[in-house]
């Protein structure tokens, strides 16, 4: 039994990360999707199209999906879509900003049987949280996490470091544990999306990152067996170079059904509105070898600002 599965050999993706809407109640400084109020795509999938996509994923036995956004809980058919996924035994994770986690909604998520809800908590205090999560409310997010825990839904906390919150590393992990999270995850904040414009507010120095990851290593050991603390130290370029050699069996589905190779590249390899999943999956595996993909990554090494064009999609 090997712990490596080459996507080339698989009949279908193992994981589909679906941004079900680009609409969001917040306008976070670092949002790769540049989501926000009024930012829904004009051509987002309607109910019938979304259900057809889900049915295709189930038919191909995709074992694991995530719904993200934007804020996925703002999607008008969020619960219906979630229930369709889990009713067939497929595991579903919700990635949310936590502002719609009322007791009733948390009970529904529990009844539907979502695998986990990942909540972004980019600060251990209202002040730091509010700087990153423009329009966001720290207290509301924390209350939402408590509602999830009370309902018995596993909670994962995600934290994006920035110059103004990186000093809270130890406190944020402790807070995640106090709130009852099963896991805590962090990595470097990427120079993409809104972060490109806000980089002078966000940028973390190499020294700060070194200290940050040292702290997380200590916390990982401290909470071993009680809460999983995981983090990814690689930067965007390292990650993309690795993915060029080892594409993950992961499709990124946009709100309008287009399928990207990976979030941090502008390349589209299919359209689930008009193409069957099998065709998109075949094209996904071929597209990673398209010379334009490797060239873009090479150009990023010279000019990190190339990420400004992530939303100018290129079909490969």
């Amino acid at each position: 039994m090997s712990a490596v599965a080459a996507s080339e050999a698989l009949a279908a993706p193992l994981y589909v990360a679906w941004q079900i809407t680009n609409e969001c109640n917040l306008a976070c400084l670092h949002c790769i999707e540049e989501s926000g109020p009024g930012k829904a795509f004009p051509d987002e999938l309607d109910r019938e199209s979304a259900m057809r996509v889900i049915d295709q994923l189930l038919e191909h036995e995709v074992p694991y999906l995530s719904f993200s956004g934007g804020e996925p809980m703002l999607h008008p058919h969020f619960f219906e879509m979630a229930e369709r996924v889990t009713s067939h035994g497929t595991q579903l994770k919700i990635e949310t900003n936590g502002h719609y986690l009322t007791p009733d909604n948390c009970r529904r998520l529990r009844e539907i049987g979502v695998k986990a809800v990942q909540v972004s908590l980019d600060g251990a205090s209202s002040a730091t949280f509010g700087r990153m999560r423009v329009r966001g409310e720290f207290d509301k997010t924390v209350a939402g996490i408590r509602n999830l825990v009370a309902a018995g839904v596993p909670v994962e906390i995600n934290f994006s470091p920035a110059s103004f919150n990186v000093h809270e590393a130890a406190r944020i992990v402790d807070l995640a544990f106090e709130l009852g999270a099963v896991s805590f995850y962090s990595g470097k904040t990427m120079f993409t999306g809104n972060a490109v414009k806000a980089w002078h507010h966000l940028a973390v120095t190499d020294e700060q990152y070194a200290e940050y990851f040292r702290t997380l290593a200590i916390k990982r050991d401290e909470y071993r067996g009680r809460m999983r603390v995981s983090y990814h130290e690689a930067g965007l370029l390292e990650e993309l170079r690795y993915r060029l050699q080892h594409p993950a069996a992961l499709l990124i589905v946009l709100p309008n059904g287009l399928v990207k190779l990976i979030n941090a590249l502008p390349f589209v390899c299919g359209d689930l509105r008009t193409e069957p999943l099998a065709k998109v999956w075949t094209n996904f595996r071929r597209a990673w070898h398209d010379p334009r993909v490797a060239s873009f990554v090479d150009e990023l090494a010279v000019d990190p600002g190339r990420t400004r064009s992530l939303h100018q999609l290129v079909h490969v």
């Binding site: 039994m1 090997s2 712990a3 599965a5 698989l10 193992l14 074992p63 694991y64 994770k93």
Partner: peptide, 17 residues
């Protein structure tokens, strides 16, 4: 799968062939 199968542990997101 054609080569056998895969086990996907979705908490750690680890895949076994």
């Amino acid at each position: 799968e054609r080569f056998g199968g895969v086990l996907f542990e979705t908490r750690s997101e680890k895949v076994y062939t």
